[in-house]
Amino acid sequence: MKTYIYMVRHGESPKTEGNERTRGLTDKGRSDANKVTELLIDEGIDTYVSSPYRRAILTIEELAQSFDKEILVFEELREMIFLSDDKVMADKELYPTVKKMFSDSNFLLPGGESSTICQNRSVAALKEILKKYKGQKVVIGTHGMVMTLMMGYFDSKYDFDFLIQTSKPDIYRMEFDDEDLIETKRLWKD
């Protein structure tokens, strides 16, 4: 029995408001969330799951509301914690840090997580979703780093180079047979 996971990376989010947990979407991010809905409206999605971070929920919210579905929030699907207290990290600091995390999976900043820790918690959540919603189509509102780490667990080609070429938003449909990844297809059109 096939299970389909739709990884929906959140839309553009301002790094000037709130913290990592509360940041919303920019005007472009909101417009792109409408495009996410248009792209996935006919996919026959059964279940909607998200990271607890506001930008991830907002990116799939319109789609879920179109079918009067609740978004189930999984704390374990939150983005990697780079700094303590969910502080926002500027991109000029973030990308060199992320590159180092891919070359040394145990590297972490004070108060943050390593890629090993983040991957272990997020993959455990994904395996729970695959088991609980077996045979369904499940949208997951997610983030670049945690999405890449989950996908990379099943196929090593999803690495730093993959992450830096993804967009905000982005959509990948993963086809599973139990916990075996059969195929991944990018659905987002820039």
Rank of each mutant, 00 (worst) to 15 (best):
M1S: 07
T3G: 05
Y4E: 12
Y6C: 04
E12W: 02
E12D: 12
S13C: 09
P14N: 15
K15E: 10
K15T: 12
T16L: 13
N19R: 11
R21A: 14
T22E: 10
R23M: 06
T26M: 09
T26S: 07
D27W: 01
D32W: 11
A33D: 01
A33Y: 08
K35Q: 11
E38V: 01
L39M: 14
I41G: 00
I41S: 03
D42E: 15
G44I: 15
I45A: 12
D46G: 07
P52Y: 06
Y53V: 00
R54K: 15
R54I: 15
L58D: 11
I60F: 07
E61H: 09
E61T: 01
E61F: 08
E61K: 15
E61D: 13
L63D: 03
A64W: 11
S66F: 15
S66Q: 12
F67R: 12
D68E: 15
K69P: 00
F74E: 13
E75D: 15
E75A: 13
L77R: 10
R78Q: 14
E79W: 10
E79T: 10
E79V: 03
M80P: 00
S84Y: 11
D85M: 02
D86G: 07
K87T: 04
K87C: 00
K87Q: 14
M89F: 06
A90E: 12
K92P: 00
L94Q: 07
P96F: 13
V98G: 07
V98D: 06
K99S: 10
K100W: 00
K100E: 13
M101Y: 03
F102P: 00
S105L: 08
N106L: 12
L108N: 11
L108K: 15
L108Y: 14
L109D: 01
G111K: 10
S114A: 04
S114H: 09
S114F: 04
I117V: 14
I117L: 09
I117S: 04
N120D: 11
V123S: 08
A124L: 13
A124S: 13
I129N: 01
K131S: 05
K132C: 05
Q136I: 01
V139K: 01
H143K: 04
G144L: 08
G144I: 01
G144K: 00
G144D: 06
G144W: 07
M145G: 03
V146L: 04
M147K: 05
M147R: 05
L149C: 04
M150T: 07
M151K: 10
F154S: 05
S156D: 14
S156T: 11
D161H: 09
F162V: 02
L163K: 05
L163E: 01
Q165T: 06
T166A: 02
S167Q: 09
S167M: 10
K168Q: 10
R173T: 04
R173A: 03
E175N: 04
D180R: 14
I182W: 01
E183R: 13
K185P: 02
R186N: 09
R186F: 05
R186I: 12
D190F: 12
D190P: 11
